[in-house]
Computed example of a mutant assay.
Amino acid sequence: MFAQVRHQLCPDLAIDLGTHQTRVAVGGRGLILDEPSVVAVDSESRRILGGGAAVGRVAKQMIGRTPDGITAAYPIRGSVVHDFDLCEAMLGSFLRKTGRSKLGLKPRVLMTVPGAISPVERRAVTNAAERAGAGDVFLIEQSRAAAVGAGLPISEPIANWICQIGAGTTDIAVLSLGDIVVRRARRVAGEAFDEAIAAYLRREYSLKVGSRTAERIKHEIGSADPLDEELVVEVSGIDTAGAVPRKAVITSEDVREAIAPVLQIMTEELRATVESCDPELAADLADVGLVLSGGGAQLRRLPEYFERQLGVPVRLVDDPARVVIRGTALCVDHFRQWRPYFESAA
């Protein structure tokens, strides 16, 4: 009885703490917050600007445009806590925005983490959430949450292969009978695409661009395989020779050449996953294929690229950027059923 009343006053929360985006869902109600994982702070005092309000969308607008005394920072890098104090402040701001805690009760929280982070990194995530105002904190691997959110039949005796490509980490797993059989994670994902594009423009066009411009190029014309009609975009940057503003026209072929090494690393990780499987599971993968999820998986013709490289069917889930928070929210809604697969600091 007390548990039911407590749940009504302070429902459980699902949090997908991503490198570029943080999403929060309330048990039984779905997604209620979707904000950039950015904080704007005074460089000396490390205090958040605007009395603690410069978090999320407000802070992201400042990236690349701040004076020397102000920093717009990402507290999460590679899907793990990079700056503990800023992460705590950011989570605290997001939890307050949910407005779900009443009578001093702290919500039970389920948070996502990559599959291959260290115990110290896992503890940092838990501590940051607890200090931000969470009650009991549980962790779930991103690949498992993505598989649940994608509706894969992971409880059945058949292999389910998922590749979750976020901003900071590519998380790969093969699941069967409700658990992860093989897992691999590499800190090469969406950000690596952006960095590769920026490096290519500097090398081939003598043009220096910021991370946001590189990300925009990826979204507007990026592709993993040739397009029926190739795309172009005009970008502005700084000429590396003359140190003056300059524009250049970039093609989708340029972007493919830039990101090819990153795609090759992802392909090698996927092949290594198959090599780690038992022959029976590997045989299943040839039939059921690979499922792609995550914001980084929205690159044009990425399923076709992996199909060509791996020789198995590949499909992209619906709404790939939110599949992890969707799966985490489902696990919160059926907490008792999924509890054996959560990690707790207790």
Rank of each mutant, 00 (worst) to 15 (best):
S101Y: 06
K102D: 04
G104F: 01
L105T: 03
L105D: 05
L105A: 11
K106H: 13
K106F: 10
P107C: 03
V109W: 01
V109E: 04
V109Y: 06
L110H: 10
T112R: 01
P114W: 03
P114E: 06
G115N: 06
A116M: 06
I117Y: 02
S118T: 15
S118H: 13
P119K: 00
P119V: 03
P119Q: 03
P119T: 08
P119S: 10
V120I: 12
V120K: 08
E121S: 14
R122T: 12
R122Q: 15
R123H: 10
R123N: 13
A124D: 09
A124I: 03
V125Y: 02
V125N: 02
V125Q: 05
T126Q: 06
T126N: 03
N127M: 15
N127V: 15
A128N: 07
A128M: 11
A129V: 09
A129Y: 03
A132Q: 10
A134M: 00
G135W: 01
G135M: 12
G135C: 03
D136K: 13
V137P: 00
V137Q: 01
V137H: 01
V137K: 01
F138R: 05
F138L: 10
L139I: 12
I140Q: 09
I140A: 13
I140M: 06
E141C: 11
Q142K: 14
Q142F: 05
Q142T: 11
A145T: 10
A145D: 05
G149Q: 03
A150G: 02
G151F: 11
L152C: 05
P153S: 07
I154C: 00
S155V: 05
S155G: 13
E156D: 07
E156C: 01
P157M: 04
P157E: 04
I158A: 08
I158C: 07
N160T: 14
W161G: 08
Q164D: 15
Q164N: 15
I165C: 15
I165G: 05
G166A: 11
A167I: 02
A167F: 07
G168H: 04
T169I: 03
T169W: 06
T170V: 09
D171M: 05
I172V: 15
A173D: 02
A173P: 01
L175N: 11
L177E: 15
L177Y: 13
G178H: 06
D179H: 12
D179N: 09
D179Q: 12
I180L: 12
I180R: 14
V181P: 00
V181D: 02
V181W: 01
V181K: 04
R183C: 07
A185L: 04
A185K: 04
A185H: 06
R186Q: 14
R186C: 12
E191R: 14
A192K: 09
A192S: 15
A192F: 14
F193G: 05
D194T: 14
D194M: 05
E195W: 10
E195I: 09
A196Q: 00
A196D: 04
A199M: 10
R202S: 13
R202K: 13
E204V: 12
E204P: 01
Y205C: 05
Y205F: 08
S206A: 13
S206C: 06
S206H: 10
K208C: 07
G210I: 03
G210C: 03
S211R: 06
S211V: 14
R212Q: 11
T213D: 13
E215H: 02
E215C: 02
E215D: 00
R216G: 00
K218M: 00
H219I: 15
E220R: 15
E220K: 10
G222C: 07
G222L: 01
D225V: 11
P226S: 11
P226Y: 12
